[in-house]
Design a protein around this nucleic acid. Structure first.
Ligand SMILES: NC(=O)c1ccc[n+]([C@@H]2O[C@H](COP(=O)([O-])OP(=O)(O)OC[C@H]3O[C@@H](n4cnc5c(N)ncnc54)[C@H](O)[C@@H]3O)[C@@H](O)[C@H]2O)c1
Ligand SMILES: NC(=O)c1ccc[n+]([C@@H]2O[C@H](COP(=O)([O-])OP(=O)(O)OC[C@H]3O[C@@H](n4cnc5c(N)ncnc54)[C@H](O)[C@@H]3O)[C@@H](O)[C@H]2O)c1
Lengths: 210, 210
DNA sequence: AGGCAATTGTGAATTAATTAACAAATTGTT
DNA sequence: AACAATTTGTTAATTAATTCACAATTGCCT
């Protein structure tokens, strides 16, 4: 089997953004797109777009650009898992609920299939369209359903312990919203969204220091 | 006045993370920290930490490290605004509410002072500890209070129009949660948190392609 | 006090990411 | 059917970010 060249994080990120724009184009019936159009939408250089395209095989034609449907197909093929990917979420608080309601039917290949919490008001109910179970069932569920991806939205002080449990039960990727830099084995992928840092960055750079 | 060297985004981001760790150290009574300790907490190299330190003036001592309180002071001095920074939030939906409740008293120098929405169920009430006003009052409020920072948590299709209004009323920095790549003038700082992309990245890289 | 071990601060070297540049290709035009 | 105008695909050049490496300090131990 031919092994695809590894793609740097930044490129994967941009490619996901290209998809947003392409879906928009598709929805308004545009069949073709130029690298410079995509570039200006995503705020990168046209050269950057074409460079990213080298990671997968898409032929554009001069004077015409890339066929949107083909482009989207290639992105799906590259980025999306082959089967629907089941995801779980830990911590059905304010943020957890927002995410649950958002991802219901958002992407065909991504589905949050269960949420877990310790709060008696939350377990054994359907919250924001998602079944919520008690933490004690986490390991069993994860193992049986072979869940590979988890989203952590528990309070900071709980996050590391939960990450440990997740890793133990076979999780391969974690999207972490707690402000804690979790420690996980090198072969588990960890993506952190640190909203506080983002806001601090915004404040810092809005003060004109650029 | 001596002009500080401009600091790259990545460094600012790391410096904000250092602060998290330093606050933790302080809370458990540790007075000093080594570059390698901080580095391993934040998952960067010790050299990287020391390099970032060159952006501000902090003296460490060999065999002892950096004084935590001094380190924190320098970060505050560099990153934080001099006065309390008032922030507004647009779109008091699931995500907006989560953010409002989270940032109440989170950072002494950051305060979400008002939220705006069009939904009659939300305006003129206090939601998650924050006063919520109707969108029609946005411009007036922003101008009068000289608000410089806004958080956008409205549906995708509304985001650009709201960004335009914000820019018009003098906003200098936007933290955007909608999946739209907003167009703003070059002198307005735009930070985007794209949760969908982050989840897609997590799924992609958890499939072992690294 | 003097030597040993550890750690800082920073240029130099390396690696990664981005942009520039341009030949090859394609379309429409005269 | 040759030409002009674009736009692609890719290599080379540039710029940015990270790591290396090591002299200079400092604390600690004997
Ligand atoms: N809400 C935000 O805007 C925001 C912003 C930045 C960071 N965060 C981080 O996201 C996380 C969640 O924030 P939130 O505002 O939703 O908090 P929250 O308190 O509303 O929700 C936390 C949820 O986790 C559950 N929980 C607690 N301990 C648990 C455990 N051991 N196992 C399973 N579930 C447990 C609680 O019952 C609760 O439902 C926190 O780490 C917070 O720091 C949130
Ligand atoms: N919730 C999530 O986890 C999540 C994840 C990724 C992205 N997002 C994005 O964040 C944004 C908000 O998501 P959400 O889940 O909170 O949506 P939501 O529908 O719960 O909230 C949107 C809020 O915006 C208000 N609103 C609508 N039009 C407005 C206008 N013109 N002016 C002011 N307010 C207006 C609505 O009344 C509502 O209160 C969306 O753009 C969404 O794509 C959310």
């Amino acid at each position: 089997m031919m092994v695809r060249k590894k793609i740097p994080e930044k490129s994967v990120e941009r490619i996901c953004r290209y998809r947003e724009i392409l879906l928009e184009y598709q929805s308004i019936g545009k069949e073709f797109i130029f690298s410079h159009e995509l570039a200006s939408e995503v705020r990168v250089s046209p050269a950057q777009v074409r460079r990213d395209l080298m990671y997968f095989h898409l032929k554009g034609v001069p004077q015409q650009g890339y066929r949107v449907s083909e482009f989207l197909y290639e992105i799906d093929d590259l980025i999306d898992p082959k089967e629907v990917q089941d995801v779980i979420l830990i911590g059905v608080g304010n943020l957890g609920k927002a995410i649950l309601s958002y991802f219901t039917h958002k992407r065909p290949k991504l589905s949050i299939v269960a949420a877990f919490d310790v709060d008696a008001n939350k377990v054994d109910r359907v919250i924001s369209g998602c079944e919520c179970f008690h933490m004690r069932d986490l390991q069993k569920f994860t193992r049986e359903r072979e869940i590979k991806i988890a989203i952590i939205t528990v309070p900071a002080q709980e996050a590391q312990a939960i990450a440990n449990t997740l890793v133990e039960s076979g999780i391969r990727g974690i999207l972490n919203f707690s402000p804690v830099l979790l420690k996980v084995p090198a072969d588990v992928y960890l993506e952190c969204i640190d909203i506080t840092t983002s806001l601090e960055k915004t404040v810092y750079f809005s003060r004109g220091r650029r």
